[in-house]
Design a protein around this nucleic acid. Structure first.
Lengths: 124, 124
DNA sequence: ATACGACTTAAACCATGGTTTAAGTCAAGC
DNA sequence: GCTTGACTTAAACCATGGTTTAAGTCGTAT
């Protein structure tokens, strides 16, 4: 089994080591292994879980929610339905956020158009 | 000229008075008037500017950027082009954010589909 | 004249999501 | 054997975006 050090993972994911340690401390990287010297070992499985963390973080899931999701993964089958619910709710929040941004785009476009016209009038 | 008190504006926009005072303190509500007793008076103009602040906040513009934009509005015509640039950049960030969320939707959908299948397999 | 409700301020407090710092451990190369 | 680089920790620090608290000022209704 190939393991990556925190430095390698930091480079691969372009995430500061301090952030990876912070995520571990906050419970976002459960079941992480250590070598005899206490150094974190990231397996392929850990990398896949970290990829999920990155997805959730980029889509604005709070750290406490990510932690709960990761804890449920560790608990296994009994939490399948709760994880399904959580993903459905998260998807809905993502759709709501997309809708909100789309709804505000015309407001920004109006300001852009108005400024273009005003600039034309200012210097004829 | 009809003026609204901070309590009325709070109720109209559904924003806590404490937040409105915080925005004022941070320079998001320039040119706000006061009565003889020092109480804030929101004119129609102020309400329109507050509506813009709400739009920017909902679309995740940082408070410091909103403040700069509001300061440029006060400066008037000389800042028209900079405000146009700012709106174009903000629109692009909104589009980028929409694209990012859209790009992650399939990842979430895969998890949802996977959980549905696993739950079916668990209880036949 | 006094109590009440709506407002004011400055300063303290809070949550979130980290980064930085200081001190230490360990393996490897010189 | 000793330095160097990569790692470890706890604790302090930081930025953002507010809310809460304490103390005070008005205007009005009783």
């Amino acid at each position: 089994m190939k393991y990556n050090s925190i430095g390698e993972v930091s480079a691969l994911f372009n995430i500061p080591e301090s952030a990876l340690r912070y995520y571990d401390k906050k419970g976002l990287l459960p079941l992480i292994e250590r070598d005899d010297a206490g150094r974190r070992l990231f397996s392929e499985r850990q990398m896949a879980l970290l990829q999920a963390v990155v997805c959730f973080k980029n889509t604005h899931m709070p750290i406490n929610s990510i932690r709960k999701y990761m804890e449920m993964i560790v608990e296994g089958a009994p939490t399948l339905e709760r994880r399904l619910d959580m993903m459905r709710e998260h998807k809905q929040r993502m759709l709501d956020e997309i809708a909100l941004l789309n709804d505000y785009l015309p407001t920004i476009d109006e300001k852009i158009e108005r400024y273009i016209k005003q600039i034309e009038e200012e210097r004829p």
